[in-house]
Nucleic acid binder design. Sequence first.
RNA 1: GGAGGACUGGCCGAGUGGUUUAAGGCAACAGUUUUGAAAACUGUCGUGGGUUAACGCCUACCUGGGGUUCGAAUCCCUAGUCCUCCGCCA
Length: 424
Amino acid sequence: MLDIKKIESDFDSVKKSLGNRNFDVSILEELLLLNKSRKNLTTASETKKADINKLSKEIGELKKNKQNADAPMKQVAELKASMEADAQELDRVLGKQNQILLTIPNLPVDSVPVGKDEEDNKEIARWGTPRQMDFTPLDHAVLGEKLDILDFETATKITGARFVIYKGAAARLERALINFMLDHQGTKGFTEMMTPFIAHERSLVGTGNLPKFEDQLFKLNSEQPWYLIPTSEVTLTNIKREQIMEETELPYLYAAYSPCFRSEAGSHGKDVKGLIRMHQFNKVEMVSICSPSQSEEIHQKMVKSATEILEKLGLPYRTLALCTGDMGFASQKTFDLEVWVPSQNKYREISSISNCGDFQARRASIRFRTKEGKVEFAHTLNGSGLAVGRTVVAILENYQQKDGSVLIPEVLQSYMGGMKVISK
RNA sequence: GGAGGACUGGCCGAGUGGUUUAAGGCAACAGUUUUGAAAACUGUCGUGGGUUAACGCCUACCUGGGGUUCGAAUCCCUAGUCCUCCGCCA
């Protein structure tokens, strides 16, 4: 959520920034009008309330002394009627203002490249060289079915499209990766967490998934407004919701494994085959809650930690700085990591690491007290470290052999009971 | 799932309709004292909103929401959470 005071005071620059994000800025004018009327109504109704409070005290005195209080009581009744009209209008205006504020994306910071869509993202680093293969690489889904370790058909029977059953070595590989990634994050100072996989509506509003992106979530048919989490960013970030921390506590660095549930509404026809786009996938997530002065350095630290996983696994990747038009709703700056996928002959996203600034902290009221005693909003960051299913894709494809077997990266072998190769 | 009880500031805790403008204590911070520390003493000590050049003033908040009343921490309704007991259960 943006600060309404900032929208008011820096109107032109806010408008320009949001325009760069392909956001329809026409609503901003309305927002300013609403805010003005919110202030007027607040002043009006609070002045009346102050008068009522005074009169009520007088009434108390009069009654205590057994004196007649009809006159002030009549006055209160009149003031109250008039105040309630203001209050009702104020409720409406405030509701509308919040509703708009909750649908405005974060402002990109100056260093974010201005651009329209993913075409304008800027490659800033590349690691590793895609392996030369003297055969046509198979797609991971084909490979997995040939090796009898991925079963899409049965999962579709049991649940539906975009689900999978991992079998034998693939199941073990997935589990090995989760453990390997969590262990790695542990050595980088991230505290391992295991959170609920279901979150309350409030938590999803806090991270920015609601109210705007409800169609991308699975909502439970429960008494409480519960949703399956689309990422453990939601639960990890909300750990400090509605809290005022001490500056000395910061930063918090968390890492968690969780399954992620996404409805993938609007992605019909995209990545229909294989593990790339599923309704349920596993991810190890990093989240940091820190002070504004720490967030940029921690952002770099998170990128580094994620890239180290790819390097240890020997998977070629590149790092992109996302442009203004391609960044996620809550982010003020995002780096994507893309891993080499031989069958598609291109790099595909495997991690997205965002600094959300104080955007989520405002929504979720995550604050800290500075050493000087001032209360400020914290900064929140999140990033995949990494998406596990897509890592399996990369390993199967990049480590496949001519005979259809797949070598297991050395760093994972101890996590797989010494297994060195997956073959039929 | 059933029956009962509870929820007050960072923490403990008083308060059952009108100087509560939330007592008191602990913790924290600053100062005095001290060679230094401790102790003692003094002071500060919640958050949001409105208003103001500023000091300040006003307003809301006692788990959330709604209601009764001239007036609610206090009474009523409702939701949540926790505790105790019973039942069921990995």
